[in-house]
Design a protein around this nucleic acid. Structure first.
Length: 792
DNA sequence: TGGCCCTAGATATAGACAGCATGTC
DNA sequence: CTATATCTAGGGCCA
């Protein structure tokens, strides 16, 4: 089918695509149009990656937001909005950039995720909005009215409804949108899966299920001296003295192609990149070498950690690793250099299989098993997951074909890999909704938004989910829902009156804050325990389970006692509290840690909130790893250097930033909950939050709030005698210049930001006393070593 | 006695969304 | 219960 023949498209759209060189639709795209995507039909498209899903979504959205001009044609200008749901924040920007071409039609594109909101007034003014599923859920919970104007919603990577943790959010959000907005067109884009027909049934949608791809994908397994392809052919590829992976990479390099290597752990990714850099290093042109050196320096500048240095070293030689321990900027630099063909090999954990578009001539799935503690050992990867990795092979328009290979080291394994992954179909997608954590949060949200007002109502709504269409045990959902209602009731989040359901004020707040109700219960319990200790009530060792707390009114009476600031909860206590929450991803407790943190628990016992589990208890392990996480945050908020934290906790810069971000978010929730419940701790919570946010000690909070002044600059200014914003406003300019290592532009910007009467730096010399000695690290760090060195 | 190499045993294991109000070195 | 790469301690060897 030709673009010009697509029905329902507004004026100018077909011409635009033709101008972009798209005249003929790919077969699956044509099928989607024939089934009515541009005329309002719901559609599930289960097709391989890079086979043109995005165009289907674009055609659907553009036709959905246009209006019938009453004359057989369609024009933009209606008030409908299209929503594009992405699975990752990083993908939101990528998609929005693709849609920005439509601004030529007078359309506006907005992005909304937890950490980024496109500027421009309101989301409701946009014609196309790109958001994560959680953000959409949150927008609905917070009563965004423009949701009712939606005419089309696109769910990208909809097979993720299978994900234990995040799948239910996508599922519930789609169900909710469909129920709330009448005539909403739903377009669900999925990888090729086993049961796309079930998804189509659930969404009352037409189905396009196809294996067609625009460029050929050859898959195979390497064993011995040959690559065995899925079509039965073989190609010689001898290994020699190095590893199988190195041989494949070298072979690809002969064709000037690049390789993406998937491995099963961060460590393996780093080790593999180091080894492969010996393969790539010798093949670089002088120009490439030079440009790679620049990228390497940029990478080094992102963070002071060893991880950062190791990555830079590898990149300088044309190889890289990629995993979630890297900072976001690290990942972006690696992805960009790989797309630019500068970096020839990337060894990655599955982060890269699901993330932004990083196609490669060849993909090697080196490890097809992964450690899974809950299963007691190594588990084979899902077929779907391996196929997603395969799907990164081949750059449309650049490569004649892509190649994806697994590695076998025995003949048996060769055959097993063919059966298991090359010839196998992906497993069916199954809803994970009937799990308590998922229902806890979504049931509360449904009640709090007034979406469901009775228990029958609730079951009716849950009956509209994918889970309900798939299960052969409908009683299960009901019984878990009943348990969840009991839990929400006992914790004071909902009230039940016969069959009627109503959220309490706290319940509303919890739903809006988007925290797991169990997190909220844990936080509330901890804050009340702190208040009890502060008011001289119970001694805090017997605070009871989260379910068992007393109503807020009874607590207020106790708080009438004179306050003693010294018994405010400490930052460590608060960090521990939020770390115990199911919303915080725990640090792994390593050997030796148990002893070390048990000791710390005794030392700092009176700072820790709530009851301490007995050492023999099963939950003690979790409680300790939360303490380890809390200690990391305390170190960060005590200005310990990033590299020392990375070393001490054996984490990467990305982990540190991730923990800090989550802590900040949960402490904000804690602050709001403290306010709502009238627990006195709100001020202490705010200060603890600001300290993790800025990564500074108490005395720097004022300075670090100034724009362009972070933990390091604030510490240098402070040590130079500039202790507050007021000091900074009237500071000796040479001191400030010294504290930023003589960078005039930076010094001027800072002084401008703080409102200095004359920020100009002309003729000012840096004060040598304020300039840190580059050899001994920052001024703050050397001080910290004395204070914190006792804990190592 | 000290340095080096080798081997056997021990060790550790992927990912990442949300609120709110503005900005690191 | 399953695997595997890396790290670490300890022994053997040599100067």
């Amino acid at each position: 089918m030709r673009v010009a023949d697509v029905p329902g498209l507004p004026t100018g759209v077909a011409e635009y695509f033709e101008g972009e060189g798209i005249e003929e639709l790919y077969p699956p795209q044509g099928e989607a149009v024939e089934k009515g995507v541009t005329e309002g039909a719901n559609l599930v498209a289960s097709v391989p990656t890079a086979s043109g899903k995005t165009l289907v979504a674009q055609l659907a959205m553009l036709s959905a937001i246009a209006e019938d001009d009453g004359d057989g044609g369609f024009e933009f200008g209606g008030d409908g909005t299209a929503l594009y749901i992405v699975p990752l924040r990083a993908l939101a920007g990528e998609k929005a950039a693709e849609f920005e071409a439509f601004e030529r039609f007078g359309l506006s594109v907005g992005v909304s995720t937890g950490n980024y909101e496109s500027d421009g007034s309101r989301l409701s003014d946009n014609d196309i909005v790109v958001a994560t599923s959680e953000k959409v859920d949150s927008l609905v919970r917070n009563g965004a009215g423009w949701i009712d104007d939606l005419s089309c919603v696109v769910a990208d990577e909809v097979h993720l409804v299978d994900d234990d943790h995040r799948g239910p959010t996508l599922e519930v959000t789609l169900a909710k949108l469909r129920q709330r907005v009448s005539d909403l067109q739903v377009v669900a884009l999925s990888a090729t899966i086993g049961n796309a027909d079930e998804l189509a049934d659930w969404l009352d949608a037409e189905l396009v299920d196809s294996d067609w791809r625009p460029i050929d994908l050859r898959t195979g397994v390497h064993y011995g001296e040959a690559l065995h392809y899925d079509d039965g052919t073989q190609a010689e590829l001898s290994v020699g003295s190095g590893s199988q992976t190195a041989a494949v990479v070298a072979d690809t390099l002969k064709d000037e192609g690049s390789t993406l290597v998937f491995v099963n752990s961060r460590r393996n990714a780093e080790a593999s990149a180091r080894r492969l850099s010996d393969v790539t290093g010798g093949t670089l042109s002088p120009d490439e070498r030079e440009r790679l050196a620049d990228v390497a320096e940029e990478i080094r500048g992102v963070s002071d950690t060893e991880t950062s240095d190791d990555l830079a070293d590898a990149v300088a030689k044309g190889a890289a690793f990629h995993h979630a321990g890297l900072a976001r900027e690290h990942r972006e630099l690696v992805e960009e250099a790989f797309r630019d063909r500068l970096v020839k090999v990337v060894s990655a954990t599955p982060t890269l299989a699901a993330g932004v578009n990083t196609p490669s001539r060849r993909v090697v799935v080196r490890d097809w098993q992964r450690y899974d503690g809950t299963a007691g050992g190594m588990q084979p990867l899902d077929v779907l997951e391996v196929h997603q990795m395969f799907g990164r092979a081949g750059r449309p328009g650049l490569d004649p074909y892509g190649e994806a290979v697994l590695l076998a080291n025995s003949h048996d394994e060769l055959e097993e890999l063919f059966d298991r992954y090359v010839y196998a179909d992906p497993e069916p997608v199954r809803s994970k909704l009937a799990a308590e954590p998922a229902l806890r949060t979504h049931v509360l949200a449904a009640i709090a938004t007034g979406f469901t007002t009775t228990e029958d109502n609730l079951h009716e709504f849950l009956g509209e989910t994918l889970y309900a269409t798939q299960t052969d045990d409908p009683g299960r959902l009901k019984s878990v829902t009943r348990d969840v209602l009991v839990y929400l009731d006992r914790n004071g989040f909902v009230e039940r009156d016969g069959g009627a359901l109503r959220a309490t004020a706290t319940g509303h707040l919890v739903s809006q804050l988007y925290v797991d109700p169990m997190s909220a219960a844990t936080i509330i319990d901890g804050l009340r325990d702190a208040a009890r200790a502060a008011s001289g009530g119970a001694d805090g060792t017997d605070s009871g389970e989260p379910e068992g707390f007393q109503p807020a009114s009874e607590m207020r009476a106790e708080n009438d006692l004179p306050e003693d600031a010294s018994v405010d909860p400490s930052p460590l206590g608060l960090y521990h509290l939020v770390s115990r929450t199911p919303d915080m991803y725990e640090l792994y407790l390593r050997s030796g840690d148990r002893e070390q943190y048990t000791e710390l628990a005794y030392e700092r016992e009176d700072e820790l909130l709530g009851s301490t589990p007995r050492e023999e208890a099963a939950e003690f392990e979790d409680w300790l790893s939360a303490l380890k996480t809390a200690k990391l945050m305390e170190d960060w908020a005590s200005e310990l250097d990033e590299d020392r934290i990375a070393e001490r906790y054996d984490v990467g810069p990305g982990d540190i930033r991730g923990k800090v971000e989550t802590a900040e978010w949960l402490l904000n929730a804690a602050e709001r909950l403290a306010g709502e419940l009238d627990v006195a701790a709100a001020t202490a919570v705010r200060e603890a939050r600001k300290r993790v946010e800025y990564g500074v000690r108490e005395e720097l909070l004022d300075l670090a709030g100034v724009r362009d002044v972070g933990r390091k600059r604030a510490r240098r200014l402070f040590n130079a005698g500039v202790e507050t914003r007021a000091d900074l406003r009237n500071a000796d300019k040479s001191l400030v210049l010294g504290a930023v290592r003589g960078r005039e532009a930076t010094a001027e910007r800072i002084l401008e930001n703080v409102g200095h009467p004359d920020p100009g730096m002309d003729g000012v010399d840096a004060d040598a006393d304020a300039t840190p000695d580059p050899d001994s690290g920052s001024a703050g760090a050397s001080e910290n070593q004395a204070n914190l060195g006792d804990f190592s």
